[in-house]
């Protein structure tokens, strides 16, 4: 299947205050690929992600999701294809109970109640939070909120998952559970993050962004060994690839 591609060509975005957040970014992501977008704070990652589900429309350049170029007319279709997971789960869980939140998307798609029920149960099972069904979101822990936020997106059966800092503010165990969960998904994944160790686990390809431009685009392992490139982009090697200060053993071979 070739129609779940994400193609961005010469994309530019300038905010009303004159900040040039994205300057001429181009890339093409194929079906089933898992790609990390890394870069310093304010490098333009979030602005780029906002283009992928049509919240921002390209000022110049084009964005193509699947068979559709991103325009005002195709935005509804594109939002069905692209599931977006926000950095702060509280922003994403706005309904009174977990069930209603997960059902929100399918209901808006106009599905019949039985189908909505099926999808909600399935999404909650896939993220292992079926027991939280009737709970109000403000009573969940950070890890549970994140899992439910992912379920709300899965219930719409998207082909492409776009995530902004999925592991931020999670304790190590919740983070590990999340990585395993995401690793099991067959979707095309685009993950903007600072958690480079997670990138090693999940993404075979990495795009490095600095000051609105692509610094590098290639296999994750190659990029993470380029110390100069990482330093220039305000990054450093993932901890797992650095030598251990306690036992003095050399870095783990990747």
């Amino acid at each position: 299947m070739s129609h779940h591609i994400v193609e961005v060509q010469d994309l530019n975005h300038t905010y009303p205050d004159g900040t040039k957040a994205v300057r001429g970014i181009s890339f093409r992501i194929h079906h089933g690929e898992s790609v990390a977008v890394v870069g310093a704070n304010g490098a333009g990652k979030s602005t780029l992600l906002l283009h992928l589900n049509g919240y921002l429309t390209p000022q110049t350049g084009t964005v193509r999701i699947g068979d559709f170029p991103l325009t005002k007319a195709t935005v509804a279709n594109i939002r069905k294809t692209v599931g977006m997971i926000f950095q702060n789960s509280d922003d994403q869980l706005f309904m009174p109970t977990v069930y209603e939140d997960v059902a929100f998307g399918p209901q808006n798609l106009g599905l019949p109640p039985e189908e909505v029920e099926l999808r909600v149960v399935d999404a909650l099972n896939r993220t292992n939070v079926a027991h939280l069904r009737e709970r109000p979101p403000y009573k969940l822990s950070g890890g549970e909120k994140r899992a439910v936020a992912i379920a709300t997106v899965l219930s719409m059966s998207p082909d492409i998952l776009v995530m902004d800092e999925p592991t931020s503010n999670l304790d190590p165990k919740a983070r590990r559970a999340l990585i395993e969960l995401l690793g099991g998904f067959q979707h095309t994944k685009i993950i903007a993050t600072h958690d480079l160790d997670m990138v090693l686990d999940l993404c075979e390809r990495t795009i490095v962004i600095h000051e609105g431009k692509i610094m590098a685009d290639g296999p994750t392992v190659t990029i993470f060994q380029d110390v100069e490139l990482l330093a220039a982009s305000h990054l450093e090697k993932p901890l797992r690839m650095q030598a251990c200060p306690v036992c003095n053993s050399s870095a783990q071979a990747i």
């Binding site: 919240y55 926000f86 702060n88 994403q92 706005f94 998307g105 997106v153 719409m156």
Partner: peptide, 14 residues
């Protein structure tokens, strides 16, 4: 936050 919540709603076909 209101803006982000609205974005989240739009993303799910609001």
């Amino acid at each position: 936050r209101a803006q982000r919540i609205h974005l989240a709603m739009l993303c799910r076909g609001f």
